[in-house]
Structures are given as C-alpha cells and as structure tokens.
Design a protein around this nucleic acid. Structure first.
Lengths: 334, 334
DNA sequence: AGAAAAATGATTGACGTACCTCAATTCCTA
DNA sequence: TAGGAATTGAGGTACGTCAATCATTTTTCT
C-alpha cells in the first residue's frame, strides 16, 4: 500500500540498513561500489523518503518568524490576518509561526526585533536601512534562512524576495492608464514615500511606459502622500485646482483620502491604486477607482512559508520563484 | 522544544493515555466527566495532534486522482505540466497523485475512466454529461471525495468547484473591451463550443456588461471555433470580410489561428483571449493580443490538492474557497 | 604476513500517534 | 449486595526514519 522504504532499498541493493542510511544521509564511510548499488536500488525501487517519518524521528520543528509592520487597517491588516490563518493551519504540521510586529518606519525598533530572534527562518518586511540589512546579514551568518516579504532588501544576503515585480506593476498601471485615456491631459502620481524602493520602482515603470507609448499624456511631478489619507486628499485637491486631471496613479496607502478627493472632483479622472482593501474595494464599486493592482497577502504568506521550508530543508529554490502574481481588479472581478 | 503531546494531556487531565486516546479519536466508552477533563486538558496545554506522526502511525497514504483531458498544447498541456510538478513534490509527503488522461469530448471514455478508480479523492475536469455526473455520484456514494476542476459539474454532488468564476471573467473581458474602445463598431465573440457551460457563462457575462454599459458597441452573434486554430482563423477572416471589427473576444482555444487572422487584418481590433499559453504570450508581445484572461494551472492544482486533503481529512471547507483568481495579463506584466 | 584503516552489518532506542488486548476498578441495577 | 456492565488503566506493537554504538569483515599499506 505505502511506497518502498529503506528496508526495500537495502534488500534490493543487498546491503544492510546501516549502509543505506549512510548513503542517504551522506554520513561517509561507504565504498564507491556500495554507494552506487544503493543509489541504483533507490532508482529501481522508486524510493522516496517519508518526510513525516524523517521529521518525526529527528524531532524537527520548523520555527519560522515573520517580522512585519503592525497596523489595523489597509494592507498590513490583511497581511496580519493572512498570517494568523496560516499560523493556525500550520500548527499541526509542526510549523510554528511567530509574528513579530514592528512599526513601519522605526528602524531602531526593527533592528531590536531582529536582535534576539530564535528561529530557523525569517520573513521580513522592513525598511531598507543599512542597520536593518546588517542585522539581517548577522542572522544569515548565524544560520537563519531569510526571505524578504513585499519590500526587498537587495543589499542583504537574503535568499529570495517574495512579492510582486514593482517595476512591472508600474508599467502595467501605465499601460492600462494609457489605454483607458483617449484624449490628452495631465496625470498625477502619488507615492507613499519617495525614498521607499518599491514605490520608486513602481514610479519608474509607470513613467517609462508613459513616455514610451503614451507621450500625449503629461506627467506631473510625483508627490509624497506619506501613506496618509488626509495628506493624500489635500495633495489631490491641490493638484486638481492647478489643472484638470485625466488620471491619478496612487502608489502607496491612504486611498480613503484619494476617494474623497475624486468624489468631489468635477470630471472623474482615471484612477489606479495599489492593494485591494476595504476602501479600494468600495472605491471600485462606487466608480471612484478604476483599477486596483494588488498583491495577494495570502499568496505572499503561503509562498513565504513554502520558501522557508525549502530553505531550511536545504532544497534548491528556483530563481524568481518568489515572484507573486500581480492581481488586477476592475469593478467586474472583485 | 516541541509542543505538548498526548502524554502531557494525560498528565494534565490525570487520566491514562488510553482514555485520552479514546476521547481524541472518539472511540466511545468514556464517561462524560472524564471526557470533559480531557478536553479541558487539551485546551489548557494547547495540544495539537501531530499530523505527521498520526499519518505515520495509521500508515495513511493519500491517494488522489486527477481525471483530466489529455493534450500536448495550450491549456491542457500546462495543466498536465503543473500536475507533474505537484506529483513530484508531493511524493515525499505521502500523497500519491494519479493522473488519468481522457479525451476532451469523449463522454464514454470519461465514464470508463471513472468506472474503476481506486482513490481517496478525485479531481475531475470532464464533460457536463448526465452519464459523467451519474458516475461521479456513484463514486461519492462509495466514499470518494470529489472536486471539479476548471469545468464544473453543478448537478453532481461534488464537494466543491475549483476554477474561476466564468461569468465574472466574461464581465471583466467586456469591461476592459469597452474601456479600451472609444468609438463604436462591431465585436466578434468566438466560443470553443456553445454547449459547454464555462464558455456559455463567459459569453453571458460578456454580453451582459456590454449591454449594460457599452451599448454603442454592437455584438455579432457568437460563433463556434471548436477549440481549433484553423476553424478560428477561418471564422475571424469571414467576419472581417463582412464588416470591420473593432474587437474580438475569444473564449476557447485555437488562439494560434486567431493571431494569424488578426495579423492579416487591416486595422487591429482589440483582442481579448483566455488562457496564457505560449501562443497567447507571444501574441501579447507582438501586439496581436491585447489582454489575456488566465486561470493559473499551478494554483488550480495546488488548490485542488489542498481541498482534497481537507476533504479526506474530514475538515470543513469554506464555501467559495475553490474560487481561483482570474489573472489578467497585458503586455507589461507577462 | 601482519597491523592499521576502512567498510559494513547488526542492533537499539527514540520520535508521537494509532490501535489493540487484558486486567482492574467503578458503577448501576435487580 | 451480588452480578453484570461500563469505564479506566497499563502496556505492547507498529509506522518509517534518524542517529547512534559496537562488532565484524574486508581492504590497504608496509
């Protein structure tokens, strides 16, 4: 009923269990000839290690840690919800998930959170500050496997980045913006912060496609909304006073303010925002928002967990396998 | 290091291991009092069963079967590739995946494939024929858990459908089509088969939104391409001879023919197709195709497996949890 | 040939759970 | 209060693998 076991392999290779074990767990002290026979027997019998039994035997418990910004609204709230769901699901598979909330721009706090961490692997969403990257590299040096989540730390030695391709996201936004807009006009770009890599990358991609293919549209210089609804609202209102807007690309958070501003506007600009939250979902329904580009938090979390497992298990991970699909929502497919 | 075990629970409840076992696996013969103490101890210690150990002990092997159409091009090829990948990955978790290829419209063959099936759970993509549904119900009655994949069998007792919302897909296609098109004109809709539910649902959704919101565009009556490239090419050419086309919505397979036809056309219609394959990917790059609506085969397969596991494990599955996200690809986010 | 080194076999005890048997204890009812 | 039934305890074996130890055999080198 069940598949072949090491006993079957030993029998097929005509060696003892001990030798099979030595080969399979490369403990050394096996002649080339014997090793070859074992490997042949493995291939012949189709033996595959029973992971459950192996983990049980070596009493392995995966201890994974997520260091992510806290917050009870918007994207981070969704992320936390997804984390909690995964945590509950994974307990009975002997995967313990520890969630360490930090504050979004508090570098010192993030470093402190990393300082005394005890786990096999870490998924981190934090500032791209040298101090943080240093601390990450220290963890890596001490044997912790690290992946970055949503926000990359490219200067660090992280094994992989899990999140969307932000340049492609920006390019996609521009593509749709351009196609939706027939006539010429001005487009406003609002980033959360101009010093955050992901926002800059989105901006870059957006600008590039706009210039390549939709040169009849003019881009206003990008403004900084600080992921804050009131600031965003103020900025949008101000821009609309200066000139009519045909499009708005909102790169960061604070969409509540954006929706308010758009609803007060005379003519509705084509509005593209990031992250499907309660607010942006409602915006799509109302028609205040035309398109939402989203990275699904559940997918991000499960991908992270599976990556962390592969890494601690010593498996190779394919390049680019951390890429998360960019979800595109219009009013018809929420 | 590891979590609490049944031993800890027994100690906490001040009962024997046997009693804990009786409660946990409800074997009966336990007094209400004792049971309450055990349950309290479980809650108090935070005990969670070690699934790996449990499965090892009861030498459980999940045997999952996929009955899906064969084919070495397009969507089904991708599906098979995804299946193979999953199969390889899941062996060491004691999940055996059997893949039973059938022919797309061969109802008798599909029924035969279902006839002598020996597995714990089944994922099926087949014709919505009464004979098939009957056979499915027979399997369900005999204890096999069944989910439908990509194509639903709503009349059967399947536990859940795994795939996209086809009506929403059609509506989304129309939404983008309408937004991309400024001026009036004719739109051609090509289905694979007008008697296949998923295609009809897409058509329905497309039509509905077109009529609701883009009444300046006129819909030609839908034609049947039989998922065949040559047929599709011929149909598109013929339609373009009758009148200029501003848009094409291709619902089924055979996109190779569509691309050929579009490339020969004088003015390029806005073209939206389904499923990201080699052909449609290249079409996006070339500009022959404007948008691809896709259901990711990997996601479908992994979702199916996780559903099947939950079902055989006797876990509740949330309604609508089989819904797969509709991926939208433009040239910028392939 | 003899000693050292290398390779191999045999065996054992975990890991946490399931499932079974047999004996001992408690409970209820006539 | 005896008798039977229900409940509980104690203990064992198994699952497949890992990680040891120790004894034995084979090979290698001088």
């Amino acid at each position: 009923m069940s598949g072949p076991t090491i006993h079957d392999v030993a029998k097929a290779a005509q060696v003892s269990l001990a030798t099979v074990d030595r080969v399979l767990n490369n403990r050394g002290g096996v002649s080339a000839k014997a090793e070859a026979r074992v490997r042949a027997a493995v291939a012949q019998t189709g033996y595959v290690r029973n992971l459950a039994a192996a983990n049980l035997s070596r009493r392995r418990v995966y201890r994974f840690c997520f260091v992510v910004p806290s917050g009870d609204t918007g994207f981070v709230a969704l992320l936390h919800a997804a984390l909690e769901r995964e945590r509950a699901r994974l307990v009975e598979e002997q995967i313990l998930i520890q969630i360490v909330p930090t504050h979004a721009f508090d570098v010192a706090g993030q470093v402190a959170a990393l300082r005394d961490l005890d786990c096999d692997a870490l998924a981190i969403m934090a500032s791209e500050a040298p101090e943080v990257q240093e601390e990450v590299d220290r963890l890596i040096a001490s044997g912790v496997k690290v992946v970055t989540l949503v926000a990359d730390l490219p200067q660090s030695g992280r094994a992989c980045y899990i999140g969307i391709d932000n340049v492609a996201a920006g390019r996609t936004a521009a593509d749709f913006m351009g196609r939706f807009l027939g006539e010429a006009g001005s487009i406003l770009m609002i980033a959360g912060s101009l010093s955050s890599r992901d926002h800059m990358e989105r901006l870059m991609g957006f600008r590039a496609v706009m210039m390549e293919r939709f040169s009849h549209l003019s881009l206003l210089s990008a403004v900084e909304g600080n992921d804050d609804a009131d600031t965003v609202e103020r900025l949008v209102m101000a821009a609309m006073e200066d000139q009519p807007l045909v499009g708005i690309y909102a790169i960061g958070a604070g969409n509540r303010g954006l929706v308010r501003a758009v609803q007060k506007a005379g003519s509705k600009p084509v509005t593209i925002v990031h992250e499907l939250t309660l607010v942006s979902r409602q915006g799509l329904r109302d028609g205040a928002i035309d398109l939402v580009l989203d990275q699904d938090t559940s997918t991000a979390v499960t991908t992270a967990v599976s990556m962390m497992r592969d890494l601690t298990e010593g498996r190779e991970i394919a390049v680019g396998s951390g890429r998360i699909h960019l979800n595109i929502y219009s009013r018809e497919n929420i």
